[in-house]
């Protein structure tokens, strides 16, 4: 693992110094730099309605620790933030499990069941994706389906399809690019999946 580039280290050090000095621009930069990554982290581990609260709580806890001078190596700010975020996520999971284990516990918030309109949209999405996948080269399609849908290991795919690791990565990359291009063409959108995802009914909760 290489050390962080100097430019990044300097940015982290500047953020820590400004927060420590109660300069409001420090918190702004802190949020701007790390909120996309933190949102992604919590979305990967928690339910969608928990993400905003956890991001907010993580920033609060991290800023408090910085102000208290607990960050000894500002150049390692992302690692420090990860420690707090991981603890937040683990606490959230533990709390949800504790609530569920209580016999009289109130029911946890649930995502609304899909309504008929949603089901129809989803059927349409499935058909569209199937059509687009059908336009890929068979070899590319097979790599995508095996890796992403069937979740087969790269090692097994390479073995079955007689591909080297490099050939596999190249084929997967090309297949993704082709799929993205076809989706853009079919839906006239800028980024793959955006329109499909936007057509989903937003999850309930905050």
């Amino acid at each position: 693992m290489a050390a962080e580039p100097v430019e990044e280290s300097a940015r982290w050090q500047s953020i820590v110094a400004r927060i420590h000095a109660e300069d409001p621009s420090g918190l702004e930069s802190f949020y701007e730099e790390f909120s996309p990554g933190l949102r992604l982290f919590f979305r990967h581990h928690l339910r969608s309605y928990e993400v905003d609260d956890q991001v907010h709580d993580t920033f609060l806890a991290a800023a408090a620790a910085i102000r208290a001078g607990q960050v000894k190596r500002p150049e390692k700010l992302p690692a420090f933030l990860y420690t707090i975020a991981h603890r937040q996520a683990a606490g959230c999971i533990a709390e949800a499990m504790r609530r569920r284990s209580e016999p009289q516990a109130p029911p946890e918030p649930l995502t609304e069941p899909p309504d008929p309109e949603q089901l129809a949209v989803r059927r349409q999405q499935r058909r569209l994706v199937a059509e687009v996948l059908g336009k890929l080269e068979p070899a590319e399609r097979e790599v995508l389906v095996r890796f992403y849908v069937q979740e087969q290991d790269a090692e097994r795919i390479c073995q079955d399809l007689a591909l080297s690791e490099t050939q596999f990565r190249l084929r997967k990359y090309r297949a993704k690019e082709r799929l993205s291009a076809l989706l853009r063409k079919e839906m006239g959108e800028e980024r793959p999946g955006d329109k499909i995802l936007l057509r989903k009914k937003p999850a309930s909760g905050h």
Binding site: L133, Y148, K176, L183, P192, G193
Partner: peptide, 9 residues
Amino acid sequence: KLLEVLENA
């Protein structure tokens, strides 16, 4: 997003 698209397949 790509993964979600493929989940639709």
